[in-house]
Simulated assay, not measured.
Amino acid sequence: MWFAVDYHSPVPIYAQIKEKVKALILSGKLKPGDLLPSIRTLAKDLGVNVNTVARAYRELELEGVIRAERGEGYTVVGLENTVHEKVKRQILTELESVLRRCKELKIEKSTVFSLVERIYQQSNQSSYQHKEGEDDGK
């Protein structure tokens, strides 16, 4: 499975899927021309309704991030630099809001920093493991 969705999040699952696909593109794990899993496959892997994945893919296609290839499925087109910058600004704005809430709730700065460090270490480890797995398969 590429990623997981948070069933307890207030963010709709289709929107989470869209953001996860965009994040994979931004991180370079998905590149233009790469095939996405079929709608049915991703729905089964995530344990969600097929229509949920179909909506996410449809919206990504409308945004120009992916395109349907007849007989092949969905391929990554990529994110334009302007879209990339827009996504980064949006994420940083969301992060700022979350950090303000942490401060309001008197969550220690050291706790927040530890969480950030742990998340970045985990993403570096999973990237390393992903690359190793690609090499082993060749």
Rank of each mutant, 00 (worst) to 15 (best):
L95G: 06
R40P: 00
P12G: 05
E59P: 01
L95P: 00
E104C: 11
L42S: 01
R70C: 03
N124A: 15
Y57N: 00
G133P: 00
E132V: 03
Q122C: 02
E108C: 06
L30F: 10
S114A: 09
P32D: 02
Q16L: 01
K103G: 08
V116C: 07
K138A: 05
L105M: 15
E63D: 06
S27Y: 01
D136N: 13
F3C: 04
E72T: 10
G64W: 00
Y7W: 12
Y7C: 10
Q16E: 08
R55N: 11
Y57F: 13
E61D: 09
K88H: 07
V87E: 11
R58T: 03
E69D: 09
V5P: 00
L92I: 10
S38N: 09
P10V: 02
S123R: 14
A68V: 01
A43S: 13
T75S: 11
L115V: 07
K109Q: 10
S110Y: 12
I107G: 10
L115Y: 10
L26Y: 03
A4S: 14
K131M: 12
Y120Q: 07
L95S: 10
L99V: 07
S110R: 14
V98R: 15
V5S: 10
K106T: 04
K103L: 11
I13H: 05
R55C: 02
I13Q: 02
S97Q: 15
P32E: 06
L115K: 09
L35F: 06
K103E: 14
Y14V: 01
S114Y: 02
Y74P: 00
V116F: 06
E94F: 08
E94K: 13
A54S: 14
G28E: 07
L24Q: 09
A54F: 03
V50P: 08
L105Y: 14
V76Y: 06
L115E: 07
L92C: 13
E117Y: 08
C102R: 12
L30H: 03
N124Q: 15
L99S: 06
S27N: 07
L92K: 12
L42M: 12
D135N: 11
V11M: 12
Y120H: 12
R67Y: 07
Y120C: 08
D6T: 02
K103P: 02
P12W: 04
G137D: 08
S114N: 14
I39Q: 13
E72D: 03
Y14A: 03
E69R: 10
